[in-house]
């Protein structure tokens, strides 16, 4: 179970029908305080629709949402006061500069004026603060969106595909930015993506949604465990070592570039290493190698190679 910390986002049978189709189907999310929750799913899985319901932008067809232990239908404003969000592509007023954009939101939030410079600094837009936003690159707009989300000092930050459409450098930058956030301010983050690799390095928990249904929800380690680890051996003359290991009945594999052993306990590995050493092989490395999480993710969501 995962209830080591207080659950601050909980949905119960969350369902949304749109145009006669069930787009989100009986989803039970559970996000604990301080989690960085990776909300994953292929395109069209229902991530944005779920997030819209969490933010009160869309009404669930059925099911309940509790955030900070409050019902979104009854206490939407109280909840939203502690939530910052960025839904799909960033929203902004192009003719205004970054400071003015933030000011327009600040006036609604009633946050202190000084907060504008703070969030600009966090997303490193201080230098560009006086330029009209329509001239911003997508990455800068995305950062402004995150700054806007941070403006009210939220306890929960909801980011829907914040790296969508960015180049690798931009993706890296946003990722670093997000990773640095909880450490500095203790916020809980819900971040959606259609790529596991994108949230893998920062997420503490993962929820996977496919065709509107939540098919996995647990800590990231559990997902890693499912990725059957292999042990890679770096040795002198790997091909000969492979044959030796096979002859002793170890499940070794040689693919002409690397020598690996599948699922093996500590004693087996110790046996392998001593066998190799006794046979005068030099052992350079014994390391765990994870099957890519991406492949498990693809398997789970049953989506095609196009992803």
């Amino acid at each position: 179970m995962t209830t080591k910390s207080e659950i601050i986002v909980a949905t119960d049978g969350l369902t949304k029908r749109l145009g006669g189709r069930t787009v989100v189907n009986g989803v039970n999310l559970a996000i604990g305080r301080g989690d960085i929750y990776g909300f994953l799913g292929p395109n069209g899985a229902g991530k944005t629709t779920t997030i819209r319901m969490l933010l009160g932008l869309a009404r669930p067809t059925s099911g309940h949402i509790r955030i900070f232990d409050k019902d979104i239908r009854k206490e939407r404003l109280a909840i939203l006061r502690k939530v910052g969000s960025l839904v799909e592509y960033p929203s902004y007023y192009g003719h205004l500069n970054a400071t003015e954009n933030l000011e327009a939101v600040r006036r609604l939030l009633g946050a202190p004026k000084s907060r504008i410079d703070e969030v600009l600094a966090i997303v490193r837009l201080t230098q560009e603060a006086r330029r009209p936003v329509k001239g911003f690159s997508l990455g800068m707009k995305q950062r402004l969106g995150i700054a806007t989300a941070l403006l009210g000092n939220p306890e929960l930050l909801v980011l829907d595909e914040p790296t969508n459409g960015l180049d690798p450098a931009g993706i890296q930058e946003i990722r670093e930015l997000i990773k640095s956030l909880p450490r500095t301010s203790g916020v809980t983050i819900l971040i959606s993506s259609h790529l596991l690799s994108e949230v893998e390095q920062m997420a503490t928990r993962v929820g996977i949604i496919a065709k509107g249904e939540l098919i996995y929800q647990d800590g990231i380690e559990r997902l890693r465990e499912q990725a059957q680890g292999r042990i890679r051996l770096g040795v002198s003359d790997p091909e000969a070592a492979w044959q030796l290991l096979l002859s002793y009945g170890y499940p070794a594999e040689w693919d002409r570039t690397k020598l690996t052993v599948g699922q093996a306990d500590d004693r087996t590995i110790a046996g392998i290493v001593s066998r190799l050493v006794q046979s005068d092989f030099q052992v350079y490395r014994v390391e765990e190698e994870h099957a890519s999480l991406e492949s498990i993710f693809l398997q789970m969501t049953g989506s095609e190679a196009s992803l």
Binding site: G56, L80, R81, S85, V87, E88, S91, Y92, L109
Partner: peptide
């Protein structure tokens, strides 16, 4: 002003 840059979702996800 809101339609152009799809700002409704931003404005309406604020505590207003």
């Amino acid at each position: 002003i809101e339609h152009q840059m799809n700002a409704w979702k931003m404005t309406l996800a604020l505590p207003v």
